[in-house]
Design a protein around this nucleic acid. Structure first.
Lengths: 357, 357
DNA sequence: ATGAAAGCGCTAACAG
DNA sequence: CTGTTAGCGCTTTCAT
């Protein structure tokens, strides 16, 4: 058997001695084809290894049984969602197509609009879009957003309880005795970033600790921008003793910056993150963070999308709980007396139980 | 502004007062369009937010600037490759489309042929396919395989040094004093699995330790199949004191089975894996394993694909090094004396330095 | 410089 | 039951 070029429907038709229309009917299980013909065509399809072209098929039929998940790039956050999405989609008859539409520099505002425009209407029956940069609804196409943009949008969404999570993080730092706590906030356009900052402020207020506004700065959720901001923060004369980073990537970035400035984590600086991507456990020291159930979020998003497509009546917003994961990047302040280390004159903060979620 | 339906080229043409042919020329930067017209059309495109339909475009032009990465499902192994692939593709002008073509049950032999047939010729300009189940070459379409199938195939490939990695793993176990070492082998159709078993046997032979054939069984690289085989192995009267699992998933599965049988890891059983997926560090105890540079493999595969498409002359096979990552799932055998625990009558094996990679 | 028209591989009426 | 026909949205000759 020679290497076939791409085998198309017309090849099958010719070989089976029928028209392409008949082959199409067989492929799509339409009624009105003689049993014998069906068998023969099936036979040929198998023998030739024919598979319908997604492009041509969807161009015509607007139905593909393929669901899209649109991300800016494949990084730890989105790939965790992907794992959950993949699991949820298995066995539903849908296939998953993940599309990375960003420019790679993260500056690609509007990537999701472009990606959506390129793929919707053809290729995919619906899409979940991850941390979109703009709000836009398009009629007649099914979309659900994970970790949505700020502001009202008609979209179905799935996110986690960012506000409570942020309070958890802040309270933990407070319970360790920290008072000069910085917040490296995320992408200002994302609702999640806004809520994390709000939770931070609420926890501080509840504890009666005033927020030093110079310690609240945009980190932008990305490595480079977070590193720049972290550097500013740590260069301050009265630098913070702890930082609550908007996400794990920023937290890890902050730890790197601290190290390069000669500061030890957690001895000289406590750092807490948000997300609990697998990478957060792999760094040194392992990162204390707020866990979002990332894989479950991906799965819920797919479930929601499938339900929306299927016209199922249901709550179009799902919010999942967050929880504190204590590892090793946070320490008590002031540090307990150690041999050879001067002891600050304050009393150590005690550690009341942490609750929430 | 009302919610637009999908805006198509004809909409742009009508609004700009030109034909679709002209719009197409502008979109594709063809010569022979008046500068003034170009400007006007660009203007309208921007204003309407037009984006070409991938489906229609590729159906006609067979060039899309989209590269595919085809996987059976999105699990830790493939998503690590994805991260590296994504990074490599950024800035090349290509976009990445990841397609999960498996049935989800892992039994989908031939998924890559189906996926390839559906997407190639249209939609994508080339593809890297991950752990393919069959060997097949198709003329005129560019494919590179990661962790390829056994047997010769004309495909460009990227993999890691599985043989040396397996020797590393086995030697480490031997150095800890283990002699009854089991091997939970991988998917028999994959070259990587074959090489890992070969490396295991070589290391055993080099050490003069005979392989008990009852301790070498197929685990299949997947959770369920590995669990079943692990259960058989551990139920043996003279069960192994250590198992070298074909990959991390099997290793983790083995630890679960051991735990459920009342065996402690690493005290009663040492387990070593292969891959070093992030999850391997997160389990309890953290898994000792052989690291493959997964993200780099993904990146190299994309580089190779881009070079192949571009007609660059180069070595079509890249093999990356593996290395031992010691965590906490392996212990010395026999165990050193401990209070309240009977001491076996043998001498503890010492631990010579490990080399290789 | 521009547009009319053909056709990529497929599906969906409609006729026969 | 089967084939003919007309597009889906786009690119590409080829006239004008």
């Amino acid at each position: 058997m020679a290497f076939p070029q791409r085998v198309k429907m017309s090849d099958v038709a010719r070989t089976a001695g029928v028209s392409v229309a008949t082959v199409s009917k067989v492929v799509n299980g339409r009624y009105g084809v003689a049993q014998a013909t069906v068998e023969r065509v099936r036979q040929v399809i198998h023998q030739l290894g024919y598979e319908a072209s997604l492009g041509a098929q969807s161009l015509r039929s607007h139905r593909t049984n393929v669901l899209g998940i649109l991300v800016s790039e494949f990084e730890p956050f989105s790939t965790e969602l992907l794992k959950g999405a993949s699991r949820e989609v298995a066995g539903t008859g849908y296939q998953l197509l993940a599309y990375s539409g960003g420019d790679g520099d993260g500056a690609g505002i509007g990537w999701e609009r472009r990606s959506l425009a390129r793929l919707s209407g053809t290729l995919i029956d619906g899409a979940v879009i991850v941390t979109p940069t703009v709000v836009e609804t398009r009629q007649g196409f099914h979309v659900v957003a994970v970790d949505p943009h700020t502001g009202p949008s008609g979209l179905p969404t799935v996110d986690s309880d960012n506000f409570t999570g942020a309070m958890l993080a802040t309270n933990y730092l407070l319970s360790l005795g920290h008072r000069r706590i910085a917040h490296l906030s995320g992408r200002p356009d994302l609702e999640s970033a806004r809520l994390r900052e709000a939770g931070f402020r609420k926890a501080m207020a509840d504890a009666g600790v005033p927020v030093d506004e110079r310690l609240v700065r945009v980190g932008g959720f990305r490595v480079e921008s977070a590193a720049a901001t972290a550097a500013e923060l740590l260069a301050l004369a009265d630098r913070p003793t702890a930082v609550f980073a908007g996400n794990d990537l920023s937290a890890i970035s902050t730890m790197d910056v601290a190290r390069s400035m000669g500061l030890a984590v957690p001895d000289d600086l406590s750092v807490i993150g948000f997300d609990n991507v697998p990478e957060s456990a792999l760094v040194n020291p392992p990162l204390t963070t707020i866990a979002q159930p990332l894989q479950r979020m991906g799965a819920e998003a797919m479930r929601l999308l499938i339900d929306v497509i299927g016209g199922v009546e249901r709550d179009p917003h799902v919010r999942l709980p967050t929880e504190l994961v204590i590892r090793a990047s946070c320490a008590a302040y002031p540090p307990p007396p150690r041999p050879g280390r001067p002891v600050p004159a304050a009393t150590a903060g005690d550690a009341p139980p942490i609750t929430g979620g």
